[in-house]
């Protein structure tokens, strides 16, 4: 658990974001306390607390005094929004730049996305064109 190159608190935040995105953590649902986090994953409680602080600033979590941390209303929507934006900036833009470099035409790309080039799609965003 948490073997990535980023600091552990970043990885914890990513994990919680992923859980909210996937709907595993519903809005207004309580998340584990720093203590539970610390003992469950055997990490320093301050590390978990740091992840929580970041998520509160992002509006993913909010603190109820004396009760603990809860998933903020609208958190999933906000995450989806920011991830969508990030998808274009971080994933698609570099891929398109690479395509440009390799001389792949826009038509070819569109055909690939729509599946009209006859290849088997590796799964991706649902398109208006239904395939059997």
């Amino acid at each position: 658990m948490f073997d990535g190159p980023e600091p552990i608190y970043v990885q914890i935040a990513q994990m919680i974001r992923a859980q909210v995105l996937a709907g595993e953590l519903a809005e207004e649902e309580q998340v584990m306390s720093t203590t539970q986090f610390a003992t469950t994953f055997r990490i320093n409680p301050a590390t978990a607390a740091k992840a929580f602080t970041g998520l509160v600033e992002e509006g993913v979590l909010y603190k109820r005094r004396g009760l603990g941390m809860f998933v903020a209303p609208g958190a999933r929507e906000r995450l989806l929004d920011s991830h969508r934006k990030a998808y274009f900036d971080d994933v698609l833009a570099p891929a398109l730049a690479q395509a440009d470099l390799l001389g792949i035409s826009t038509d070819e790309l569109v055909a690939y996305v729509l599946g009209t080039d006859g290849h088997r799609k590796p799964g991706g965003p649902t398109t208006t064109t239904e395939e059997s």
């Binding site: 720093t34 203590t35 610390a38 003992t39 055997r42 990490i43």
Partner: peptide, 11 residues
């Protein structure tokens, strides 16, 4: 033991 350290430290 590590778990006890963390739990007691948090508390």
């Amino acid at each position: 033991f590590y778990d006890e350290i963390l739990a007691d430290y948090a508390e």
